[in-house]
Design a protein around this nucleic acid. Structure first.
Length: 458
DNA sequence: TGGGGTTAT
DNA sequence: ATAACCC
């Protein structure tokens, strides 16, 4: 996650009203100590996208299928017993009327996903994506501005939007809650905008940090929102039945913890820090033990454009080089279109495989720089960029797979990463950005001082 | 599971 | 390059 104190460090000088989000970097929120974070979680996202594409699918039980699995389904289908990640066989057995749509091509889901992130980005630039269907938004500054617009006698009149997470009765008039209540109003506006502009429904959780916002967003589903007030934080985290339900504690860590006899949240809260550090390393140990108390000081990191593009395909078996090459070419062709639309240029290509012999989810990969002359042609449609890239990918393939020996693959993945916006030329304290057209001009004309620098760069 | 993504080591 | 995490 992030070192302690991330978004709450020293305020430092900042231009008033100017909050610039730099993707991948935390943004200082000034001297504000209590944050307001919202977690926005779309309802059965892929199924929603399919129902928008084809409204006749509404009020029918709908599943989205990848290979032999129903990876998500709408609420009609859930009522009839269909669950996420169910085998198609089992789902059809449970629910013979189930309509299935193939969801292996993520293009429309990805596009809609970024529309959601962009829409949230109109409220504040502090939006962090988590997968295609979830976003965290740091509302602290927005809330503070709205608060300053209020007269002191209006504070007690601020009302909550949506549910309040609580077992006991809470005093909503306590003005120490006013920031979270305003946060709940903004969250409602966000969900309204998502529905009005994109036709999407979803849940939201509003809380003082990302962990708690995420946990509380799922309390009332679907299409509802919940705010968590500070006095209920312990109730929420202690309400979990197993540590694996804490986001950040994954399969491996949960296994390791179980071996130590740690299963429940109180188990983890009270376990010896020293022993935990020895078992998991100081970083993970301290992090997850904080999580067990509901503490999470990680900041919302604006995601910006993606850092990598990949296409993958899984299959029962691929055991010849010719077959592998065909599949790699398919993946590559799709990727080239995607990277062309993005505008930036990848400087690294990676090939990953999964062998049928490998125990569960384990991949091997090899990567290498994309040749400079290939990078330059990448945006420019007509040139053949496939051939050199296939050549380099097959070299990576043969580096991983001894093609003279029998092999058996179940997955191939091609990834473009190390994306650079434009040709960056270092000249002094400020980097200078050349537009592609200017770059071309410099190529054809006399060779400038900057061009010599560029050659070193690539 | 699948077909994606991210960060840390 | 891998391993962990997230969806």
């Amino acid at each position: 996650m992030e070192p302690a104190g991330g978004s709450q460090g020293a305020p430092g000088p900042r231009e008033p009203g100017l909050l610039r989000a730099v993707p991948g970097q935390a943004v200082s929120t000034g001297s504000i100590s209590s944050r307001v974070i919202v977690h926005v979680d779309l309802d059965c996202f892929y199924a929603q996208v399919e129902m928008i594409s084809n409204p006749e699918l509404k009020n029918k039980p709908l599943g989205v299928q990848q290979k032999s699995f129903v990876i998500t389904c709408n609420y009609e289908a859930r009522k009839l017993g269909v669950k996420k990640c169910m085998k198609v066989r089992d789902a059809k057995e449970k629910c013979p009327q189930l309509v299935l749509i193939n969801g292996e091509d993520l293009t429309r889901y990805r596009e809609m996903s970024y529309k959601v992130t962009e829409l949230l980005g109109e409220f504040t630039p502090l939006v962090e994506r988590l997968g295609f269907d979830e976003n965290f938004v740091d509302l602290t500054e927005m809330v503070e501005k709205r608060l300053q617009q209020l007269q002191s006698d209006e504070l007690a009149a601020v009302t909550v939007s949506g549910h309040v997470y609580s077992n006991k009765s809470v005093n909503l008039n306590d003005t120490s809650h006013v920031r979270l209540l305003i946060g709940s109003q903004i969250a409602a506006e966000m969900r309204e905008a998502m529905y009005n502009q994109l036709g999407l429904t979803g849940c939201a959780g509003i809380a003082p940090n990302k962990l708690l916002a995420k946990l509380v967003s799922g309390v009332f589903k679907p299409n509802q929102q919940t705010v968590l007030l500070p006095e209920s934080c312990q109730d929420l985290i202690l309400g979990l039945n197993h540590i694996k339900e804490i986001p950040g504690i994954g399969y491996k860590t949960a296994r390791c913890l179980e071996a130590l006899g740690i299963r429940s949240v109180p188990d983890l809260q009270t376990f010896s820090s020293k022993i935990l550090e020895n078992k998991l390393g100081i970083s993970v140990a301290q992090h997850i033990q904080k999580l067990s108390f509901g503490e999470d000081n990680s900041s919302v990191i604006p995601s910006g454009p993606p850092q990598s593009f990949s296409e993958e395909d899984s299959f029962k078996n691929c055991s010849s080089e010719v077959e592998a090459k065909k599949k790699i070419e398919e993946l590559l062709a799709i990727l080239l279109n995607r990277v062309c639309q993005d505008g930036r240029k990848p400087h690294t290509v990676r090939l990953a495989i999964r062998r049928s012999s490998s125990k569960y989810y384990s991949r091997e990969s090899r990567q290498c720089p994309i040749p400079a002359h290939v990078i330059q042609k990448l945006g420019t449609g007509n040139c053949d960029v496939m051939t050199p890239l296939v050549t380099v990918l097959m070299k990576l393939f043969r580096n991983m797979v001894n093609v003279k020996m029998p092999f058996h693959l179940t997955l191939l993945s091609v990834c473009f990463c190390n994306l650079k916006a434009l040709n960056i030329v270092k000249k002094g304290p400020m980097d200078c950005y050349l537009t592609p057209s200017l770059s071309t001009t410099l190529h054809s004309g006399k060779r400038s001082f900057e061009m010599k620098d560029m050659e070193d760069f690539s």
